[in-house]
Design a protein around this nucleic acid. Structure first.
Lengths: 158, 158
DNA sequence: GTCTAATTGAAAATGAATTTCAATTTCCTT
DNA sequence: AAGGAAATTGAAATTCATTTTCAATTAGAC
């Protein structure tokens, strides 16, 4: 099993690299690079965690009070389309975004007390999922797996 | 692996039994049995499939035009609290309800073309989930697992 | 620099879920 | 069986995240 644990912000090198990727995506699509998109992408990649548009907006408007919620919202959608972020909806029904690098598919452990989100990947489970699908003649394209419970910290402090 | 396949409505015997269970739940909580609750519960149990409040309402108002959406909505919440139904939210972000009998925990295969929902249970996967959680010192209380892709029918007709 | 198309941000719109409230119904008490 | 307190009902209003609209601004190709 591959253990990721909690996310942390990425290094400057990766961030720069990703921002380049965003730029080429924009150019390719005939879209424009703007100060707002640049700042929002930077902040998003630095935070690294699963954030809602609202959370990211609040963070950004501390530094740049002229950037509106709508732009943050639209930029996250854009990052999603460009392959730099994924959208996730957990049990609280809020849409969260997380930076996505290459092929790092993973699932989540979600603490129902403190809300912390931990990532993991388990190839054995994935193989079994494929097998289950096969038995139904089902062709699985993606999956969603979340475990809800108490994280180590909350369990110990109970 | 236990295969459930698609749900079908339940037999009259089970339905009557469940409606008794609802009645005792209501009595116990100091709530009232009403014509509406009775009809909504019947219809819900007969349909058997995963339905949204909206869908169930549309079905019911064909027969009983005096029953409002709000009551259907509230009755589904009630069935949930009484343990006769579970709430589920899939990728389309709509809240669906399904009849729940005793301990039949299961997961879902969801067709991204026709929307059909198939149920399955796989104990091996569940054991692995527990193991993953353990490695993080995480105490899992529940989980959610959905596989999205093409069902046999849609795959074959492609 | 000019011009066109894209972007921005505030405000409005959307849509599912939930709450409000006056009228009605249940069912406990007598 | 009638009275009355409390729960229920249904329509309409509200909430809240998400998404769209639109006029003003900006990017960047020529």
């Amino acid at each position: 099993m591959k253990i990721f644990g909690r996310r942390t912000g990425e290094g400057i090198k990766q961030i720069t690299q990703k921002k380049e990727k965003l730029k080429s995506f924009l150019k390719e699509k005939g879209l424009k690079s703007t100060r707002q998109r640049d700042l929002i992408a930077s902040e998003f990649l630095q935070i690294g965690e699963h954030v809602t548009a609202e959370e990211l907006y609040r963070e950004i408007s501390k530094k740049y009070s002229d950037i509106g919620f709508t732009t943050v919202y639209r930029t996250l959608k854009l990052l999603n389309k460009s392959g730099l972020a994924t959208e996730r909806v957990f049990a609280d029904n809020l849409t969260r975004y997380e930076p996505l690098s290459a092929e790092d598919h993973h699932d989540h452990l979600i603490c129902i007390k403190c809300g912390s989100i931990t990532e993991f990947q388990d190839l054995k489970i994935e193989r079994l999922q494929t097998r289950v699908a096969d038995e139904f003649g089902f062709h699985a394209m993606s999956h969603k797996m979340e475990l809800y419970g108490y994280c180590k910290k909350c369990k110990d402090n109970a």
